[in-house]
Design a protein around this nucleic acid. Structure first.
Length: 848
RNA sequence: GCCCUUGUGUCGGAACCGGUAUACGAGUCGCACUUAAAAUGCGAUGCCCGUAAGGGAUUGAGGGUUCGAGUCCCUCCAAGGGCACCA
């Protein structure tokens, strides 16, 4: 036999067999321990490349390994299929988004993900753009709406001129749209829908502590994004208008005696009210100029100079009754705190810079030693001793913080306040290919929710013309937008905005638990059984976006008593990106179509097979690190699987495989056989450890498999190198055991070739059996330990000699062994031995 | 500017608690097989000095702790990422 390894002959065959046997199906409510393995579902853009395959490979290895460990594994897949590319494709190819999307899904599912050898349970496939999914997205929206967690307000929002829609704060990066960094977003006042994510700011922050299975850097990013700061809101009364109060937020109420001015954000409505006639012209000019500068420009100019103009009005400091001028400046943001700050130049770098710019006084109220410094060269931001602060003088500034806040509360001049950087989630989008917001606007009744029984509000497919201009096509679809009010029955209009697609992906993991349910979004029983996700794998780019939204929605659904879990993802693995040399730039860059450095999947599968592709992506780098695609490296893996193939098929041909036999006892074997037996047990131990969640070290797992293959080749050459030579029965049994174990530990990583060889070598119980139904092999700890070890002998920490020694040699005996060693004695050369350090079974260090 | 991560042969990368640095693979070289080549099998392969035996330095740089540091501590350099007028 010894046939050539030809992946094309075996891979599709097994993919079909696994599917028909249904071996990847998850069983609801099974008594085995459950394991929910999830990979971030893709947007069906049409064609995956090898860079995309990394995440599916990692997640698949984890899923397959868990099945072999005896878990009831849920490993589902679906499509995040609403989104802008479908509309753009419709525009450029004259293809309806739905048709384009469904074509892509079919190709990606059948020609790409299946051919990679993934073990998804396709009976639970979800497609977010399908009415039986978005119906429940709408239902969830209505539940949030009825609970007061969804609301509409007018606010300055981020508008992307390219996407022709608004964006959430999380979707703006460096002042540009996250989808195209070259397009600046612009601020617009608009009436928009928001979800009250800020109501969950504290749980979202605090529960990060419970996510011990998350990478620290993701948690840090979320912590920063939520940006909780504790401080006080202080109230300053306007001198000329005693009924107008300016509230400022500060984290440093202890510096309140150092206030020498107030600043309002240009967008603050108080500006118009407080600007005096003499200052009007300059202020209006300034506001005009500030409104023209984008957020990005405002940020970029941060380090250089500050701008601002006085309003002409003054405010009274509640602590000392002082009158300070009120300015307008764009270093104050309307969207954070109260849109007004107190200026304390002595103790805040930005205020110091501003004061210097405009010649405002600097007053020190905290000093390191309790004595005022002559003049400050820069702001003193550290804690210190209070000075020039009336009755608070002499206190430590940290103590004064609480005391002064309490004083403000007693005197109606302020209160304690916690401020977050996190804003509410803007979810309305002026786009067509998204989930319609299930609300109706009625002249008489106002905003009326669509009754749950009438869901879904369908996204019209017929009669839609996508032009890319003039707003959402939904507003031009008369038969859709005109409707009757569910309250009064009168004429009404549908809400034409659709939802941010991040809502679709904020609950898909719940739908997988109960994908076929036509009565509800998911049953509580099933989500309680499967949730939380035990291992989530996905890209770091969602560290804030998707992962924060999904956490929020889970908490909101828990509050509405629809699910019982508090956090959706117990463990998170953020895989690194795949890079490759890009001829365009001459640099190593992220693999992507636009950079022209992609490696196609089907091309590679045809030539080398999916197993080689999987092994290479696992082997070339640890999962969290960047991986550079290398043709040579990938072919190296093809060589490795071919080597395994030749080894096993040759043994089978020569009748040396006897898989039903028991593994012989170590005592019945000669030295080299015992060595192989130990190598097998060491390999099982190492791979078991490498595939555990503590490691997920697939690269070293494969290295261990390679070592076993090398050991087997060596052993077979020694014992059966001569084709005619008889192999002792115990040695044949040992070889069979070694091969069996090798196939088992490799099975999660290279599922096709191991399955084929499992059957070929007679390990399978029958045609309907599968290596992927087999149990993960166990190792015997005693057989992973060597009896004889190499003892390292050092003098003053330098290696001088190495000697063989029995395992467990006592300290005194080891010391004697070392001191009698000729080379050690040569090094000591008569000097007095000060000390001897013995590390049992490792080394002896002689100190002279 | 602040915070985080990473720096190991020609390359991708190993190294558990501080205890033989460079596992495994790629590349290169050699041998076997072959008429030949490919493929395959076997072997060698970090650097400097040396014909060799052998010796020396070595984990971004410098210092420290320790019998012993790639690993721990401090300073610095470089790359990557995050945050960035958030009061």
């Amino acid at each position: 036999m010894a046939t050539q390894y030809n992946p094309q002959d075996i891979e599709e065959k097994w993919q079909e067999r696994w599917e028909s046997l249904g071996i990847h199906r998850a069983v609801d409510g099974d008594s085995r321990p459950k394991f929910y393995s999830l990979v971030m579902f893709p947007y069906p853009s049409g064609d995956l490349h090898m860079g995309h395959m990394r995440v599916y490979t990692i997640s698949d290895v984890i899923s397959r390994h868990r099945r072999m460990l005896g878990y009831n594994v849920l490993n589902p897949m679906g499509w995040d299929s609403f989104g802008l590319p479908a509309e753009n494709a419709a525009l450029s190819r004259k293809l309806h988004p739905e048709i384009w999307t469904n074509q892509n899904i079919k190709f990606m599912r059948d020609e790409q993900l299946r051919k990679l050898g993934t073990s998804f349970d396709w009976t639970r496939e979800v497609t977010t753009s399908s009415p039986d999914y978005y119906r429940w997205t709408q239902w969830i929206f209505l539940r949030l709406y009825n609970a007061g967690l969804a609301y509409r307000k007018q606010a300055p929002v981020n508008w992307c001129p390219q996407c022709q829609t608004v964006l959430a704060n999380e979707q703006v990066e460096n002042g540009a749209c996250w989808r195209h960094p070259e397009i600046q977003v612009v601020q617009r006042q608009m009436d928009q829908w928001f979800l009250k994510i800020t109501a969950f700011a504290d749980p979202l922050l605090d529960d990060l502590e419970t996510l011990t299975g998350w990478p620290e850097r993701v948690k840090v990013m979320q912590r920063n994004w939520i940006g909780r700061s504790e401080g006080a809101e202080l109230h300053f009364t306007v001198e000329s208008k005693p009924n107008v109060r300016i509230a400022v937020f500060t984290t440093r109420p202890d510096t309140a005696f150092g206030v020498t001015y107030l600043v309002l954000a240009p967008e603050n409505p108080l500006v118009a009210e407080l600007t005096t006639p003499e200052c009007r012209e300059k202020v209006e000019q300034y506001l005009e100029q500030a409104s023209r500068r984008s957020e990005l420009e405002r940020m970029m100019s941060a380090e250089k100079t500050k701008t601002g103009v006085p309003t002409g009005s003054h405010a009274i400091n509640p602590f000392n009754g002082e009158i300070v001028p009120i300015w307008v400046a764009d270093y104050v943001l309307m969207s954070y705190g109260t849109g007004a700050v107190m200026g304390v130049p002595a103790h805040d770098e930005r205020d110091f810079q501003f004061a210097r710019q405009f010649g405002l006084p600097v007053r020190q109220v905290i000093s390191p030693d309790g004595k005022p410094a002559a003049e400050l060269a820069q702001a003193y931001v550290e804690p210190g001793i209070m000075v020039g602060s009336g009755s608070f003088d002499g206190l430590a500034s940290e103590t004064a913080r609480a005391k002064m806040t309490a004083w403000a509360e007693e005197n109606q001049a302020g209160r304690k306040r916690v401020q977050y950087r996190l804003r509410d989630w803007l979810i309305s989008r002026q786009r067509y290919w998204g989930c319609p917001i299930p609300l109706i606007h009625c002249q008489k009744c106002g905003t009326v929710p669509v009754p749950e029984s009438q869901l879904p509000v369908p996204l019209p497919v017929e009669g839609i013309e996508i032009t890319g201009e003039g707003g959402s096509p939904l507003t031009r679809c008369a038969e859709w937008i005109n409707t009757k009010c569910p309250g009064c029955g009168g004429d009404a209009r549908r809400e034409s905005d659709t939802m941010d697609t991040f809502i679709d992906s904020s609950w898909y993991f719940l739908r997988y638990c109960d994908a076929g349910n036509e009565q509800s979004a998911f049953s509580r029983d099933k989500t309680s059984y499967w949730m939380p996700v035990d291992q989530y794998v996905g890209g770091i780019e969602h560290a804030i976006l998707h992962l924060l939204y999904a956490r929020f929605l889970t908490k909101a659904l828990k509050q509405l008593d629809l699910v019982s879990c508090n956090e959706p993802f117990a463990n998170l693995l953020s895989q690194g990106m795949v890079t490759k040399y890009s001829p365009g730039s001459g640099r190593i860059e992220k693999m992507s179509k636009s950079r022209g450095n992609v490696v196609g999947t089907n091309d590679f599968f045809k030539r080398y097979g999916a197993d080689s592709a999987r092994l290479f992506t696992l082997f070339a780098a640890p999962p969290e690190q960047e991986l550079e695609w290398s043709e040579e490296g990938a072919i190296g893996q093809y060589r490795f699987v071919s080597r395994v193939w030749r080894l096993v098929s040759d043994l089978v041909e020569r009748g040396l495989m006897n898989p039903q036999a028991e593994c012989p006892e170590a005592s019945d074997l000669d030295a080299s056989s015992r060595e192989l037996l130990k190598l097998v047990h060491k390999t099982i131990k190492a791979v078991t450890h490498d595939l555990s969640p503590e490691s997920y070290s697939f690269n070293t797992a494969i290295a261990r498999c390679m070592e076993l293959v090398n050991g087997l080749y060596k052993y077979v050459a020694e014992k059966a190198g001569d084709q005619k030579a008889a192999v002792a029965p115990a040695e044949g049994e040992l070889i069979s055991f070694a091969v069996r174990s090798l196939l088992l530990v490799m099975a999660p990583m290279a599922p096709h070739i191991t399955e084929e060889l499992w059957h070929l070598s007679g390990c399978a119980a029958g045609a309907a059996d599968s290596i992927h139904l087999a149990r993960w092999p166990l190792y015997v700890e005693a057989l992973t330990i060597d009896d004889e070890i190499e003892l390292v002998l050092q003098v003053n920490g330098k290696i001088v000699s190495k000697v063989a020694a029995p395992r467990g040699l006592a300290g005194a005996a080891a010391e004697e062994l070392a001191l009698n060693d000729a080379r050690i004695q040569g090094k000591i050369n008569g000097q007095s031995v000060r000390k001897v350090v013995v590390v049992p079974d490792k080394l002896v260090n002689v100190v002279v």
